[in-house]
Structure formats: structure tokens, C-alpha cells
Computed example of a mutant assay.
Amino acid sequence: MINVSQPSLGDEELAAVQEVFAGNWLGYGPRSEAFEERFARYLGVEPGHVLFLNSATSGLFLATELLGLGPGDEVVLPSAGFVANANAVVATGARPVFCDVDPRTMNPSVADVERVMTPRTKAVMLLHYGGLPGDIAATAALCRDRGVALIEDAACSVASSVDGRMCGTFGDIAVWSFDSRKIITTGDGGMLHVRDPELARRAHRLAYHGIAERSAFTTAAQGTDRWWGLDVEYVGRRLIGNDLTAAIGQVQLSRLPAFVARRAELTTLYDEALAGLDGVRLPPRPPVDHRSTHYFYWVQLPEDRRDRVAKSLLARGVYTTFRYMPLHRVPLYGPPVDLPGTDEAWATTLLLPLHQALSDGEARTVAREFIAAVGECGA
């Protein structure tokens, strides 16, 4: 079976893990801090504003907590997103308000966002679908004008940028995912960026039980009596990453340019192989000043054919899928609303295999089998 996604791990990552074993310290420590600093430099932000977490989902929940969201507040987010986005909002007692997306890009326009904002809107949570940057600059400007916080879910956008500025640095808070399916992986893990210095300070404490920086882990070296005492500032949880996974992350980050370049090559291969296929729409190309990570490669077919083509491909040894189920159709989040662009995308879109370990031969097999499945399923 040719998979939609899979990690790329090798001897360098294994050697990094062996070094951690040899050092006999697996928890959050010097390698986690080094990973944070290196990622901050990569983004072009201050290191103290970046925190390595155990998942991007933890970062989303932490973001809503940092913003003090609660009952009576509303958060605007695209329905074409992962359940973690809505869950992070609902957990605070706030209400998710879903906006529509362009059915081709799967990203909302600034007009889509503004259309559903109300005086109760306290935040906007924006996803860059499949690594394709959305209308982020205009949305960030809208949020500033309205005094509304902007959370960027850059889980799939670790190398995405607009006019040279990295996605995840436009908003007030951002998260990236390093789970096993992402372009760079730490197995599980994520990174958080908080623009405001005081909120960044609080994030570091909330992510480790609410304990202040000057605690048992630093006071012993300073000769303080009873250094085992803890200074607990907030009611926090344990959300931090660890040195074992951070060691993998540092290696993966160094390989990121090659990973993205390879995914771009595969995107071009698919574009050329599938060009002109009757009844099939290929992914939209990003504007000149937008850089994509090419996390997803999506094709779109008429609704009455999409599912049949997917089943045919599965029988041919090619796994396909679609992410994400429209959140406005999940009963947990409230009654359904009318979002035609999202519904069209849900009914017509299919993700083909795309990852940097995919060979040219495998990609050509996917293209060949897709063309055959489309022909088999008729017009």
C-alpha cells in the first residue's frame, strides 16, 4: 500500500537519540532548549517566546487559556479544520463560530472571517490548509483593527511563508505540529510561539504545572537552603516536550529544506502527469509571494465519482483520504450552518499520497492508477 504520508527518519536521528541515552537525561533539558532556540532563529523570533510542547493540540488548548476565553466569548475558525481547533475553544466554555472557505484552496478569505464576526468575537483561529498559506496578512490586519486575538494553527505549515514572512508569526499565538505524519516529526510534539512577552512568560509556567522559573531545578546550584521548595504561580499542567524527542527534532529541522524541495518535485510530477484529465481539478497554485510546504496534494472530482474513485484506488494499493470533516457538521459543536464552500470541498476532494520518502516510481504509479480509476468510474 502506498501511504498518504509517512515520516523520514534515518541514522542521524538514531545517533541523536543514542546521545541522549548516553547522557542519561530524557526529560525537558538542554536539548529541548536548544531545539526551541534553533526553531526561534528559523522563524526569526525571540527564543524566549517559543516553547517545545508534547503536541500542537496542547498548544491550542494553552493558547485559549492564555487568552482567557470563557462563556459568552466567540472564536471564529474555518469549518475545514481539525477537531482539536474546536475542542480547544469548547473546553473554555467559549463558542466556536465557523466560517466558510474557498472550496479550491480550503482556506477562508478575510471576507469569510469578517462575515461571521460579532461584538462577542474574542479571537480568530486560522488554519493554513495543507501548508498553503491563507489570507493571513489581511486577516491579521482585520484582527488588529477589531482588537481581536489571532491564533495561527500552522501545524502543516512549518515551511510556509508569505512575502518572506513565516506563517505562524503573523498572529498573537501560533502552534506547529511534529506528530508522526508531519513533514518534520518528533514522534509526537509541537511548538508554541507567543508574541506578547508577559503571555510568553506565563505560557512557560502553565506548561509545567504553573511552577515559576526559580524553583527546585535552579535554586540548588545557587546555594539556596531547602532548594526542593516550589514556587507555584498558576494552576498548570504538564505540557512540555523532552530531550529525547527534541534531539530528533533538531535533526529533522536541519533536513527540512530538502524535505520541502522533494515535496515540491513530487507536486510538479503529479501536476504534469494529471494535467488535462477530464473532470478532475488539480490543486490551485499559490500566489508568487506565497510559499507552501506542499503538505497535501488534493484533487477534486464530481461528488458522485469521488468515493468510487477512492475505493477503486484502495483496491489498487493506493491509500487516499480527505481531511478534514467539516466541523460545522459535528453535532457536539452546535447545530449545522450553511457553509457551501466547505460542503463542496468535503464532497469532492481527495488527498493523494505525498511525502518526501515517496519515490518517482511510486508517484507515477499513483498517477497511473488514479487515471485508471477515474476512467473506470465513468464520466
Results as ranks from 00 to 15, higher is better:
L266Q: 03
D289S: 11
H290S: 07
V288T: 15
E272G: 10
D271K: 03
F259W: 11
D278L: 15
R285N: 15
P283M: 00
R291C: 09
P286Y: 02
V280P: 01
V251P: 00
I248G: 03
T267V: 07
L269A: 07
P286R: 15
P283D: 00
R285Q: 15
V280R: 06
A264T: 02
A264H: 04
E265W: 06
R281P: 14
D289T: 13
P283Y: 00
L269Q: 07
A247T: 11
Q252S: 10
Q250K: 02
P286T: 07
G276L: 10
L282N: 06
Y270L: 05
E272D: 14
Q252P: 02
P287I: 10
V260A: 05
T267A: 14
R281K: 13
R263Q: 05
G279A: 13
D278P: 08
L266R: 01
S254D: 15
L253T: 00
Q250F: 01
A247F: 12
T268L: 13
P286S: 09
Y270C: 03
L269R: 10
Q252G: 05
V280M: 10
V251H: 01
A264C: 01
L253R: 03
A264V: 03
V260W: 05
E272S: 13
A273Q: 12
A261N: 10
L277Q: 11
R281G: 10
V288F: 11
L282T: 03
D278E: 15
P257C: 07
D289W: 14
A261C: 08
I248Y: 06
Q252D: 04
R281E: 15
E272M: 12
A275W: 12
F259P: 07
A261L: 10
E265N: 05
P287F: 12
V260Q: 09
L277A: 10
R291Y: 08
G279P: 12
R281D: 15
G276R: 08
R255D: 09
L266V: 05
G279K: 08
E265K: 14
P283G: 00
A264R: 04
Y270T: 07
A264D: 04
L282F: 03
P287A: 03
A261D: 07
Q252V: 09
L277P: 06
A273S: 11
G249D: 02
H290Y: 11
Q250P: 00
Q250R: 11
E265G: 06
P257F: 03
A247C: 09
V260E: 06
R281Y: 09
A273Y: 05
D289V: 13
V260L: 08
G249Q: 09
D271M: 02
A275E: 14
R263P: 00
L269G: 05
E272I: 10
T267G: 07
A258D: 11
P284D: 09
L266F: 01
L266Y: 02
L274D: 04
D271I: 02
S254N: 04
G249V: 08
A247P: 13
